[in-house]
Design a protein around this nucleic acid. Sequence first.
DNA 1: CTCCAGGCTTTAG
DNA 2: CTAAAGCATGGA
Length: 273
Amino acid sequence: MKFDYDSTCFVPADVLECGQIFRFEKFRQGYRVFSADKDCYIYTDGAKTIVECGDADYFYNFFDLGRDYSKIIERAESFGVPALTSACKKAAGLRLLNQNSEEMIYSFIISQNNNIPRIKLIISRICEGLGQKMSSPLGDFYAFPSSSALAAKEPEYYRSLGAGYRDVFISDTARRIAAEGIERLYGLPGDELRRQLLTYKGVGPKVADCICLFGFGRRDAFPVDTWIEKLYREDFGGTLTDRNKINAYFTSLFGQFSGYMQQYLFYAKRSNL
DNA sequence: CTCCAGGCTTTAG
DNA sequence: CTAAAGCATGGA
């Protein structure tokens, strides 16, 4: 099945290349996108962006299509920060995805002190090695593995896939989640979710913020990485060096809109838009 | 060769 | 509590 949506605030390249998702590839006229055990094909045709998939409800929510991003951009411009206004103009088709919680936990554990092309490569190897093979009208693909499948492998396996020293973080976290589940994390209030995420091996403040933002819909989170540090110095005239304090600066400035603002800023800076 | 990438854990002070 | 060393890997 397929459905469409106004392409003004839904541009596949902006949504996918902004660093929030690691499983996608150029495909036909647009992109093929993978999430958990599902896939879809998105492309823009004139004023519409079209989504072809087997589960429209899932991808409607996944692409956050119930939210009006023209209002998000209005709010962004209201802050009167030149770098942010400029970022919104250049990345107007960006949206925040609602991604699978467990997939985000492992993906961002792998992301630490790493670069995006290599993160994508390692994750794709893990899916091919441990994920269930799925059939789709768009072609066969591999689902993101379950925690129990991930838990069954030794750290050496992840090392062999190029994960480096993050090998033990992956297997330790997988074994814990395979035993405990993550259901207890849903519905946790305020910063309690963040505090709980910090108890997993390989999850520090920045990774926890990414998991909150992309995997739990916590749009008040503001991950601070090397790009945000750079942008904070160059575009906001900031002098702080402690990442926790930089995070506090931005979250107090942007409040409930922190996560959206972070993505516009991060994407525009990193992609040199 | 060094420096860097969506940083974290461990150890020292 | 804060500060810094150490950590795999591959591209620039």
